[in-house]
């Protein structure tokens, strides 16, 4: 990567992640009739997808960890008002993806697998933390009505956005 591309990355990544995090809420609100059809509750995770895609593409950029921490903090503060969930989980995702890129090649299939793994992990951690603080239903409800549909919808979003995002990330690093 050239020096210019590195500088470009420094403003591109925060903007890209902030837009993705705001789009999560906007999509949830615009399609609430479909996404929150009780008991089914689907959470869109574009912010998480943006993090996985960016870190997978630029694993050497160590500062991504701090960007994830700060935007995670904003995410918690803006959406739930309870700070701690995304503030800590998103930097953990950055560390995990950076570690796993050492062993897996950069291909759509592997990126998809890592994204699904991370999505599963994050959703599961969120459920555990929420149930610890008395904010959730049963585990069986979580598996059937939350985790399953959430993974299905987010996999579709990942597949649909794979090539547009690849083009965008390539353009930035040129």
């Amino acid at each position: 990567m050239t020096v210019l591309a590195k500088q470009r990355l420094k403003w591109f990544v925060p903007t890209f992640w902030v837009v993705a995090f705001l789009l999560d809420g906007i999509i949830s609100y615009t399609f609430q009739g479909f996404l929150f059809q009780y008991p089914v509750m689907i959470s869109t995770q574009l912010f998480l997808m943006a993090i996985v895609r960016t870190v997978y593409r630029f694993p050497a950029a160590r500062w991504l960890l701090w960007v994830a921490l700060i935007i995670g903090l904003f995410y918690d503060s803006f959406y739930s008002g309870i700070i701690g969930y995304y503030t800590f989980l998103m930097p953990a995702v950055v560390i995990f993806v950076r570690w796993i890129t050492n062993y897996l090649p950069d291909s759509p299939l592997f990126q998809g697998t890592v994204y699904l793994l991370v999505l599963f992990g994050v959703e599961f951690c969120l459920f555990l933390l929420n149930s610890f603080f008395g904010n959730t239903g049963d585990f069986s409800i979580f598996i059937t009505y939350d985790l399953g549909p959430t993974i299905a919808v987010n996999t579709l979003l990942f597949a649909a956005l794979y090539y547009p995002l690849t083009l965008l990330l390539n353009k930035v690093s040129d």
Partner: peptide, 15 residues
């Protein structure tokens, strides 16, 4: 007017 809805499934909050 509603600006956005929390994507976190357990929260059920709107802004």
């Amino acid at each position: 007017a509603v600006i956005t809805r929390s994507p976190a499934t357990w929260q059920n909050q709107v802004v």
